[in-house]
C-alpha cells in the first residue's frame, strides 16, 4: 500500500527495521547533515509531518535523527510553516557544538534505539493519515 509519507533518516536501525515497508531515505551522516537534507526537500515543496527537533536529547548529543515528510508539488508550492520550522531547527542545532564525534558503540546503539522509538511513536498517526 503506498503511503503519502516518506521517512528521512541517518539512523541505520530505522532503515533496517522499516526500509522495505515504507519509503525510507537513509543516508549516514551527522544530525545537522540530515537537517540540511530535510531542508532541501522542504524547499522543493515537501511538508514536514514530524518536528525536526523531536526528542529532548540535544542535537550535539545524539548522532541520529529521523523525520517524516509528505512529498510536495515542487518548489513553487512551498509549505511556509515547514520552511520556518526547519530553518529554526537548523539555527537551534547550530547552537550546540558537536561534542561526541567519537562514541563507544554501545552508547551509539542506545541513541539509535531511542531515535527509533521516537520515530515509532509517530508511525501509527502517519500510517492512518
Amino acid at each position: 500500500m503506498a503511503y503519502n509519507f516518506k521517512i528521512m533518516t541517518n539512523n541505520e536501525l530505522v532503515f533496517e527495521k522499516y526500509g522495505n515497508e515504507y519509503e525510507v531515505d537513509y543516508k549516514p551522516g551527522t544530525y545537522e547533515e540530515l537537517l540540511l537534507r530535510v531542508r532541501t526537500e522542504v524547499h522543493n515543496g515537501a511538508k514536514l509531518l514530524t518536528h525536526p527537533l523531536s526528542g529532548s536529547i540535544k542535537p550535539n548529543e545524539t548522532p541520529f535523527k529521523t523525520v517524516y515528510l509528505k512529498k510536495g508539488k515542487g518548489p513553487l508550492h512551498l509549505d511556509f510553516d515547514s520552511v520556518e520550522m526547519i530553518e529554526n531547527a537548523i539555527i537551534t542545532a547550530k547552537k550546540f557544538k558537536i561534542r561526541f564525534p567519537v562514541m563507544p558503540d554501545y552508547i551509539r546503539a542506545d541513541f539509535a534505539l531511542i531515535d527509533l522509538s521516537l520515530m515509532e511513536s509517530a508511525l501509527p498517526a502517519a500510517t492512518q493519515a
Partner: peptide, 21 residues
C-alpha cells in the same frame, strides 16, 4: 522565501520568492 520570518522581522510589503538557495 521564509515569509513568516519576514513577517516577524517586520516587512510591510512581502513577495514570496522561489527558494532559499
Amino acid at each position: 522565501t521564509v515569509t513568516p520570518i519576514s513577517m516577524t522581522v517586520g516587512a510591510n510589503r512581502i513577495v514570496p520568492a522561489i527558494a532559499i538557495p
